[in-house]
Write a protein that binds this DNA or RNA. Structure first.
Lengths: 341, 341
DNA sequence: AAAAAGCTGAGGTACGTAAATCAGATTTTT
DNA sequence: AAAAATCTGATTTACGTACCTCAGCTTTTT
């Protein structure tokens, strides 16, 4: 039978109130008594029943999600997952507030973080912009003792408790290995298509990709990245230009959210031989392109997993509990046409 | 504020006991009263507080895991994950009993399932052997109203509530696509290495693999599968023989747990040109082989995810709650040397 | 018609914890 | 030395649900 506070009280020869004060680090217990209670806790192997405690406290976890306003499918999906989490709030004892901030602007993010630091949130998750002022704001959140998780995009050298997102350097490296292996002995140029290299995840993916290309596939020339701002029309124009300029392109790595511009180009005037195309983010579009052979592989991060993981971690941190590390590692999903969900 | 049973009682003009009887489908409520209460429940949007209910019931979920006694790394890992779940039992309100059965023998599995059907378990998870007698035993478990999840290996046409494992046909197809693409224009033979084709997962992986090879890579000849019974020494002998017999082997797909026999062969006398090697199951061995280039890709299923998912699903079924489908889908992890955990 | 048996509803207690209130002892202040 | 303030510990209530006991009413049995 699991020991309860009553068992501890009996074992230590004190009342429930005293046990409660020791457990919750409240004042009003003499040193000697405190030690006796702590010994009883240790020797009985007591662990707090979080469900009962939450019931007694009528606890809800007020969490804040700071999300960039961004039209790309991934961010829309992320937002949808947060909304599903909100729909589950009733049964999960959470209350999730979403703060919208303009994408890529650190000022608004800083303001949102400072609002959180001043409030009574039990935790905050945010898509980081990797800038010094954001780092400082994160420091203030941490100083306020509020658990903090970065989502999708990490904040380097910051006191965040956890990062719920993929390793983007590894993702880039993986894309490069797939690209190189799929091309085999073919010769030609590779063009990376990014949203903006000001975004940390895009830069990291490109770095990882470039490194492996240089190291393992030196016979393939890596062109400078095309920055399409994840804007379908701009991407369409830029990619069209590049393909005309370099008829010997044999590989395309779309590491951002520019698929809506890229795919029409590929389908409109198919190159011959077809280039190897690797994209990020599984959507209806990319999934269809995978099936019909327009593209070869999709790397994906599961927004639902990221959101649920962020909430689990925030809860655990708020309760001072450990997290199951293996469970919270967000994996890089690799989809070929054969293992689509 | 979330409505409680008190709100329902007040709204329907009845007592708590009546609400309780309606909620828990107990007898002793007049039809008209029952309808009034149900209307109140619906109109207030009441959802039972599972935590409070479990507290009141002092509920523990007695689950049974039926695991095959098997020395291979994957099964050992699965067992370890079940043990970690047992270690968390205290905080998760579970009590997990493990029943060991000899691997691949349906009789012992049937006996274990019948024991479960006769007992008071709140759910059972088992690694299925796909045989008619097992299917019948599963029927008896279902008839006893006990939630049932197949783990790692599914049972076709059975009344299991859920399958916590990967789509093995898709895994085989994925391996074939990787194999074919990695080989590019190379010609030669491909040899599949299985544990036993009596096991459903192995058979399915091979089927998926063979189909894609035949369809998309007809220039590569698929040799008959080598059945190594996941026995390192046997595998070493058999693979050695096959490689001698067919000097033009350019691809090896190890779809079972024979890696401990295969890898030494590959490392001892490296073929030239090196064959493309794709394995299942990420272990210390396969991970190292990936890093040093002996092998090219590893397909993996995460045993920890499978066990945790099985428990979540069993709990949900026991409580009559819905499951988050996307969360419970076990994915086929593809590891290259670049995205190792 | 009286007694027994069912039906329906009310009230109270328990689950494990948190937290407010209360009581007694000790120390400090006047 | 008396009064006030501070410590320390005990008791009690509440959280939302389950379930047990009991009371009043209706129906059936004798």
């Amino acid at each position: 039978m699991k020991p309860t506070v009553h068992d501890i009280a009996r074992s230590a020869g004190v009342s429930l109130a005293t046990v409660d004060r020791v457990l919750n680090a409240r004042p009003g217990v003499r040193e000697g008594t405190r030690v006796r209670v702590e010994e009883a806790i240790a020797s009985l192997g007591y662990v707090r029943d979080v469900a009962a405690a939450n019931l007694a406290k009528s606890r809800v976890y007020p969490f804040v999600f700071i999300l960039p306003v961004n039209e790309n499918p991934f961010m829309l999906g992320l937002r949808r997952e947060v909304e599903e989490a909100i729909a589950r709030s009733g049964t999960e004892r959470t209350r999730i507030e979403v703060i919208d901030v303009p994408a890529l602007e650190s000022a608004a993010l800083v303001a949102a973080l400072d609002k959180v630091a001043a409030g009574d949130a039990a935790g905050v998750a945010f898509v980081a912009v990797d800038a010094p002022d954001v780092r400082e704001a994160a420091g203030r959140v941490a100083a306020a003792g509020i658990p903090m998780v970065t989502l999708v995009s990490d904040l380097s050298q910051s006191p965040r408790d956890h990062y719920a997102g993929i390793d983007n350097i590894a993702a880039g490296r993986t894309a490069a290995t797939l690209m190189g292996r799929f091309l085999g002995s073919r010769q030609g140029k590779i063009v990376p298509l990014a949203g903006s290299l000001m975004v940390r995840d895009h830069r990291e993916r490109l770095d990882g990709f470039a490194e492996v290309m240089r190291q393992n596939f030196p016979h393939l020339a890596l062109l400078p990245a095309v920055e399409g701002r994840d804007d379908p029309e701009l991407v369409e124009t830029l990619i069209g230009d590049v393909l005309r300029q370099h008829p010997d392109i044999c590989g395309i790595y779309s590491l951002g959210a520019g698929n809506r511009g890229l795919l029409p180009v590929l389908e409109a005037k198919p190159l011959s031989p077809a280039p190897v195309v690797i994209l990020h983010e599984l959507t209806g579009l990319s999934s269809a392109a995978l099936v019909d052979g327009t593209i070869d592989a999709v790397l994906n991060q599961d927004a639902g997993h990221e959101v649920r993981s962020a909430i689990r971690v925030l809860k655990a941190k708020a309760d001072g509990l450990p997290v199951i590390a293996a469970q919270e590692r967000i994996r890089i999903d690799i989809f070929l046409k054969d293992n689509l969900p």
